[in-house]
């Protein structure tokens, strides 16, 4: 049974609302693009959808982590070991969040990379291993460097596409959204792995993150009709 004091924890309501909005907007993007994918079986659309599915899962796990951390002091009321469960959920969070970014990157480069269909499978295994090792040795730095690397490459590719498109307006707005998403994804990861890091500016980061996801959702709706 959950102790009633969880609902009195400061920021608990904000976490619920924040997680809910991100999860729902990510899932809406996933389902809104289903028709386009079914019509085309376009791999770029597939990976784009997978990215948002992983975003939704990552935020769900992120919420679970917060839930466990909040309950940490009340661990005596649980029969399980919350530290172990925290480590497992952290590994899953890092794995899913990194895979979300990887899928977003992959959606842009699949034409050159997808000749070997097993490649994405190996990436899954590699990211899962790195996530598990990172959590086991408690080195969040490795994971942040990994995510920053993927984010940097994706941002550069998005920028190159923007230049190649002749600085088309639609591509520019999406480039901006991508860059914002990437930056705030890293901030969110830092915030999740080190809960005290953003104690003062957390709400601003949450608002901008929500704004970013809703912007992508709007951009998707506008284009899918």
């Amino acid at each position: 049974m959950i102790h009633p004091r969880i609902f009195l924890m400061p920021g608990f309501e904000i976490e619920i609302i924040y997680s809910f909005i991100i999860i729902v907007s990510s899932l809406m993007i996933y389902f809104k693009t289903k028709e386009l994918y079914n019509l085309t079986t376009h791999k770029g659309i597939k990976y784009f959808r997978d990215a948002f599915l992983f975003f939704a899962v990552a935020f769900f796990i992120r919420f679970i982590i917060f839930f466990l951390l909040t309950l940490f002091e009340a661990s005596r009321i649980f029969e399980f070991n919350p530290r172990l469960l925290g480590s497992v959920s952290s590994t899953f969070f890092i794995y899913t969040s990194t895979m979300a970014i990887v899928y977003l990157l992959y959606s842009m480069i699949w034409e050159k990379w997808d000749k070997n269909s097993k490649k994405i499978g190996w990436i899954h295994i590699g990211i899962a291993l790195v996530s598990a090792i990172g959590v086991a040795i408690q080195s969040t730095l490795i994971l942040l460097i990994l995510q920053c690397l993927v984010i940097s490459v994706a941002s550069l590719i998005a920028y190159r596409r923007y230049i190649q498109s002749g600085k088309k307006k639609g591509v520019k707005s999406n480039l901006t959204i991508y860059i914002l998403l990437f930056i705030f994804w890293v901030l969110n990861t830092i915030g999740t792995l080190t809960p005290d890091f953003f104690s003062t500016s957390k709400i601003i980061i949450y608002l901008v993150s929500i704004g970013t996801f809703l912007s992508i959702f709007y951009a998707v709706i506008k284009r899918t009709g």
């Binding site: 386009l36 019509l39 085309t40 376009h42 770029g44 659309i45 639609g170 284009r223 899918t224």
Partner: peptide, 17 residues
């Protein structure tokens, strides 16, 4: 597909897919 083609190409192009 014919009806949705414009949406499909705009989506793929704008998101760089």
């Amino acid at each position: 597909y014919l009806e949705k083609y414009k949406n499909i190409t705009t989506f793929v192009e704008d998101f760089g897919l």
